[in-house]
Nucleic acid binder design. Structure first.
Length: 663
RNA sequence: GCUGCUGUAGCUCAGUGGUAGAGCGCGUCAUUGGUAAUGACGAGGUCGGGAGUUCAAUUCUCCCUAGCAGCACCA
């Protein structure tokens, strides 16, 4: 007999060979029916898997939402694969995990058939529902590695065979049967039967290409994505959330609010409209103040440099395919012949600012007494990004960084990094992001520099974050092995937005490679030449992307200090136009970005239109207001209005329009 | 770059092998109204670009290009 301990502290003696399902049945038929899986000594397992000794058991039901969702999504993925193979025999299956909101399965369409498309999804969904409704038992079975490889090969499942062959030799592998006509290799655990899934709680969302094992050199499979939940209500709620996220899309809001546009002739580069550029200018002014206050000196460096400079820095060899290269010659102006001869020297648009900053540092002789030197630049960079990567403001080919490079001694690295941590935290808080995570990306496989330098650099970053008091769970502190840049480890700042999404923005990297390659030195206390350490750092990352993030975070309803138009004065009847202009004049004199809407439209119309444009304050004026020298302020997102004197209104708007660091 | 999908008026989108439609927006006129759409009339499109099939292509086929979703990439 085994002793099974339950969460309520009770114990049951169960015969050898019994299973969690038996315990559930022994407790009561209701629980037996509701049980989905079991947590045995902390590990989630199948209900039907026998105990292997005394155990602590907790039965999992749909009330244990996290576990139940994980199980359901994993099972949806298997049902998806089974359905695809049932409809199109000869389809190869590969891999299908659960995701944050559902599941996917990577499949390879049978030879001679095009990859699956959106049109195929309804048919697959229907088959999936059939499988679920058939309530097929899911049964775990152990196989030897070799038997399984042979089975996959016999079935023509080359991907599965390849995968099984790479698992450790002699290891016992498990498969799961769905009924007795379909199986997949899987560690499990699974629900007891497909009928435990709710056929109305999933939806196939899209298809996409995905490389076998995530490697571009491998075959491209079709990845079928679905979202899966415990019940219909949860699915509906999720679809609603997606819809809400769609409403925040910065591309949509950018058009509606007339902030910027993109067009074919300059794809990946942004046309900023007057309203959008007002946000930019406000942010830039804010960042200038922040960097001035942090001891940075702003510079401006060339947009185009000789390719030899990029060879020295190492970028030419590693990133040339993503650089815009320009021939250093006069183009052929004749009608005939190629525009460029082909034997010209090459120049390149800068993809980053750091090599130029080293050139500034290198002018003259720097003493250790001058360090640290902090150079800042609103640096406009170009990167020839792969076409498929471009995405609104989030991934562009021309962008401006709030870039900075700190040249310092070995002894100053930790302190400078600590200061940066604090500066970044201040900036994010000022911009309304209450939550962020700091992560350390450590050495990648391909890298420059010695292991000793990497050891040191990584430890310095750890120490600096600890010194700043931010190496804690509260700050989401964690390490990302292998994610660093080729020349340096980096700290990354990940913001959490209003609907829980995260965005990587700021970074600091401690670099000993570039000063070496570009021969930057300073004179030390001993009179000898020494290498400075170079800290690459940015807080916004790129203005384009950061503005995109702000738009999505605020769903377009930017705080007043950032809003392109901070107030609109709207007279109710045209007799009041004169007073409206007077109000406008007062606001303008106070430096408020404002407009008067004197159009021949009803007040309802004006309220609606400016609300849709996310103008924070609408100052409505009618006969009453004119007589009393007041305005009726309607604030975005509020239904009621506040009537106040013009002086009070100016004071209120001025206060709200003041940047947080100037309050 | 890879896979799938899409490209029709300023915007959102219908539609068709016989050279196009709606709503909003825009213009004109009327209306002077109290907090999310006043009404009427009007202008506006080489149906992303190129080639092919056809008597005829916005529609069918191919190529290119851009966008969307994902993958890969992201110094």
């Amino acid at each position: 007999m085994y002793t099974i301990s339950l969460p309520d502290g009770s114990q049951r003696e169960m015969p050898v060979g019994s299973t969690p399902a038996d315990v559930a049945a022994a407790i009561g038929p209701g629980l037996a029916k509701a049980a989905l899986a079991a947590r045995v000594d902390g590990e989630v397992r199948d209900l039907g898997r026998p105990f292997e000794g005394d155990a602590e058991l907790a039965l999992i039901t749909s009330r244990d939402e996290e576990d139940a969702l994980e199980l359901a999504r994993h099972d949806f993925a298997h049902v998806l694969a089974e359905a695809v193979q049932a409809i199109w025999p000869g389809t190869q299956i590969t891999f299908g995990p659960s995701t944050d909101d559902g599941f996917y399965y990577d499949v390879m369409a049978p030879e001679g058939r095009d990859p699956f498309g959106m049109d195929d999804l309804p048919k697959i969904e229907e088959k999936m529902r059939e499988i679920i409704k058939a309530d097929k038992p899911l049964r775990r079975e152990a196989w030897s590695r070799q038997a399984l490889i042979d089975k996959w090969k016999a079935d023509g499942e080359t991907f599965k065979a390849e995968w099984a062959a790479e698992l450790p030799e002699g290891e016992e592998l498990t498969v799961y049967w769905s009924g007795d006509d379909w199986m997949d290799m899987c560690r499990g655990p699974h629900l007891p039967s497909t009928g435990k899934l709710d056929p109305a709680a999933f939806k196939l969302m899209r298809v996409a290409g995905a490389y076998w094992r995530g490697d571009q050199a491998n075959a491209q499979l079709t990845r079928i994505y679905g979202t899966g939940w415990l019940n219909k209500k949860q699915l509906a709620a999720h679809l609603h959330r997606l819809e809400e996220a769609g409403k925040r899309d910065h591309r949509k809001l950018g058009r509606e609010m007339d902030l910027f546009h993109l067009q074919e002739e300059a794809h990946g580069s942004v046309f900023w409209h007057p309203k959008g550029y007002k946000i930019w200018r406000e942010l830039e002014a804010y960042m200038r103040r922040a960097m001035d206050g942090g001891g940075y000196e702003e510079i401006k460096t060339p947009q185009v440099m000789d390719a030899r400079q990029w060879e020295k820095s190492g970028h030419w060899g590693k990133y040339r395919e993503n650089m815009f290269v320009i021939p250093d010659e006069v183009p052929n102006v004749e009608d005939e012949g190629p525009v460029i001869s082909g034997d010209a020297d090459w120049m390149a648009l800068k993809p980053m600012n750091c090599p130029a900053h080293v050139q500034v540092f290198k002018q003259g002789i720097t003493s250790y007494r001058d360090l640290p030197i902090r150079l800042g630049e609103m640096g406009c960079c170009h990167r020839n990004e792969p076409h498929g990567a471009l995405h609104g403001l989030m991934r562009v080919r021309q962008f401006t960084q709030d870039d900075g490079h700190i040249f310092c001694t070995e002894d100053q690295v930790v302190e400078e990094t600590r200061k940066f941590c604090q500066l970044a935290a201040r900036v994010y808080a000022d911009l309304g992001f209450e939550k962020f995570a700091i992560k350390l990306a450590t050495r990648p496989e391909q890298r420059f520099g010695s292991d000793a330098d990497w050891d040191k650099a990584e430890q310095e970053l750890r120490d600096a974050v600890a010194d700043a008091g931010m190496a804690t769970e509260e700050f989401g502190w964690e390490e990302l092995p292998g994610e660093g840049a080729f020349y340096a480890p980096k700290l990354e700042w990940h913001l959490t937005d209003a609907i829980g999404r995260t965005w990587q923005v700021g970074t600091i990297q401690s670099d000993r490679v570039l000063p070496e390659r570009l021969d930057a030195t300073y004179v030390g206390e001993d009179g000898g030449r020494h290498r400075p350490v170079m800290l690459h750092r940015a807080i916004f990352g790129s203005y384009e992307r950061f503005i995109g993030i702000l738009i999505e975070n605020y769903a377009g309803k930017l705080p007043v200090w950032l809003a392109p138009t901070q107030a609109v004065v709207a007279p109710i009847v045209s007799d009041i136009d004169g007073y409206a202009s007077e109000v406008l004049g007062r606001l303008e004199a106070a430096g408020i970005r404002c407009e008067a809407d004197l159009r021949n439209e009803k007040i309802n119309y004006k309220v609606r239109e400016h609300s849709l444009k996310k103008v924070p304050h609408l100052l409505v004026v009618g006969k009453r207001e004119q007589e009393e020298g007041t305005v009726a302020i309607r604030t975005l997102g509020q239904k009621d209005q506040r009537v106040m004197s013009l002086d009070e209104a100016v004071a209120l708007l001025t206060a709200e329009a003041t940047a947080p660091d100037l309050r």
